[in-house]
Design a protein around this nucleic acid. Structure first.
Lengths: 333, 333
DNA sequence: TTGTAAGCGTTATCAG
DNA sequence: CTGATAACGCTTACAA
């Protein structure tokens, strides 16, 4: 693990070109107080020796790592991928490097990750992880790392947040459903330990049902396609209809497929809405009605907010992304 | 961006506990040549002051960053997500931090990323990106960064690679198809600029067809579901059959959906195989026959290889993952 | 067991 | 425009 050993340093470059460290430093930092000749000379030996400055040493000397930490539960979700993609784009554009931390849905890991984020001296952090709460973010903040939190309303001096608007739209859709049809029992699919967004939408769901004096069900499902497909195959042996609200496309797809495979019709017998719609909502057959938020845009926005935050230029500390509802084949409306 | 400013340093801890820097350093590095009493004293003030060591300074002093660089084209593919997930798991287990670099399928970006990987002083790198070739890896190697390359056979002192076995299996499947049926024209879907794996499988495809003296077609398709769905809707107006080899699930799904929506039957009229199968092959209807490689395992393996490489303990420098073929509903066999 | 001091590879503040 | 020299925060011989 001695990869730094033997690397050409600024000192050797200075020696080889007959100038001082300071001059070499000026050249690599593109400062203009260097004669064209000396600059050329230094640049030549840099090229010849294949010198690359050490980001580590630079960071230590300047107090800037140009590195930002990203905390996610797992890379394995499509919406997280989209989010990451938005982040990487801005990072590249603005010259930041990214450190990826994942917590695997465990509080212990999350605490650990928090420590790592602090010690790794990032210039900022973006947290999209329900294991970490306001207090944790405050801790990060106390170490002077500006933070943007996704999907959690957090306040703080060095903190911004972007939140998702689902509740309103879900309530609206349900109201509409109750008004125009409402014949099937509304069923909310609860995934164990699946975080704030689910909890909030569940609350909104209950509220909408209560407001309309409708009976509803909360059903526990497994967070995997295969498992929940099987569960719903069993379910549809005794139940022949339902108006389902599913957290993720894959769960929605499990219901749709199980229903179809059980001889039920979509959307006549069974209707399904996916809360976190991705491009796969469009690929399954029947296609899935879903709520959508462009997570790539969320990633980009988070980066921009973080950069502003670092420069003390963030005016609007909370940014809300409203979901849009896209009706497809899995619902009548 | 002065996030380091005001952070508690080892020096302040030393002063506050009335010991020297060295002692504090010993304590935080869990060396055993410290009296329990002084250790306790130091630990107390560390806790009181909320001191966290600077990873930067540690890395500079020890020549070890415990950070490894991951180079990918984009975070936006399911198979890349799976790969990342495998990596993050091992990283956590072994105490590494990850730096994520994405090249966006551009050679320029890739070169840029390479520079960044070098300057960021990672202890190693994992490259899963077709823009970077053997020469680039050699460059990395010349800066003493051990590297594991995915999907490219690369040799070098500080280099390992994991490669994917598709050709054999594809040829086998095709031979079988020609033998048992072979009535439909085999069509390989070429995605512009889509990298080595596609090129290799395309070659294998051509070879198998030639060996069997079968006519075949290579068709250019767009690398997006929506676009290729439209293209195939148009295509199936005039063509009523085909045996398609698609690169990705989403392309395979586009064909299957377009065919179905055009009144054709799967697999009677149209058969489709997806080369890079993901869990979505199982979710679409009809389900997609596909070749599978567990990319999570690939990620894990790459990490283990990299760690061994760093310790000069990597015996087997090339590791091959054979794809497995899973027949589903989109083919007869 | 503990402290002193040199060094890791840079940048930055001074003089010159 | 250029060169010493002191930081940056930590580790690690070497001394005590």
């Amino acid at each position: 693990m001695n990869n730094l050993k033997d690397r050409v340093t600024i000192y050797e470059v200075a020696k080889a070109s007959g100038v001082s460290l300071a001059t070499v430093s000026r050249v690599i930092n593109k400062q203009n107080n260097v004669t064209p000749e000396t600059r050329a000379k230094v640049e030549a030996t840099i090229a010849r020796l294949g010198y690359k400055p050490s980001g580590l040493a630079q960071a230590l000397a300047t107090n800037k790592s140009t590195n930002i930490g990203i905390v996610i539960p797992s890379a394995n979700y499509v919406y997280i991928s989209n989010f990451l993609n938005g982040i990487t784009e801005v990072a590249k554009e603005k010259g930041f490097t990214l450190s990826l931390f994942s917590t695997s849905h465990s509080r212990d890991d999350a605490i650990n990750v928090l420590e790592k984020v602090i010690t790794s001296h990032v210039d900022g952090a973006i947290i999209f992880d329900d294991e970490l709460d306001e207090e944790d973010v405050a801790k990060l903040s106390s170490y002077y790392v500006p933070t943007v939190v996704i999907n959690n309303k957090v306040e703080g001096e060095r903190t911004g947040c972007v939140i998702f608007g689902y509740e309103h739209n879900l309530i609206h859709i349900l109201e509409q459903y109750f008004e125009k049809d409402g014949s099937k029992c509304p069923i909310f699919l609860h995934v164990h330990n699946c975080g704030r967004l689910l909890a909030r939408t569940e609350k909104a769901f209950v509220k909408a049902c209560n407001n309309a004096s409708k009976e509803y069900k909360i059903m526990n499902v497994d967070d995997s396609y295969t498992r929940s497909y099987q569960d719903f195959k069993a379910y549809f042996k005794t139940h022949k209809s339902g108006y389902f609200i599913a957290y993720r496309d894959s769960i929605a797809a499990a219901i749709v497929n199980a229903a179809t495979d059980s001889g039920l019709n979509i959307p006549e017998d069974v209707e399904v809405i996916s809360l976190i719609g991705t491009k796969y909502a469009n690929i399954t057959r029947p296609t899935l009605s879903s709520f959508n938020i462009n997570l790539q845009e969320v990633g980009k926005r988070a980066m921009y907010m973080l950069i502003d935050l670092s420069n003390n230029e963030l005016m609007q500390k909370t940014y809300k992304f409203e979901s849009t509802y896209v009706k497809r084949q899995s619902t009548k409306e």
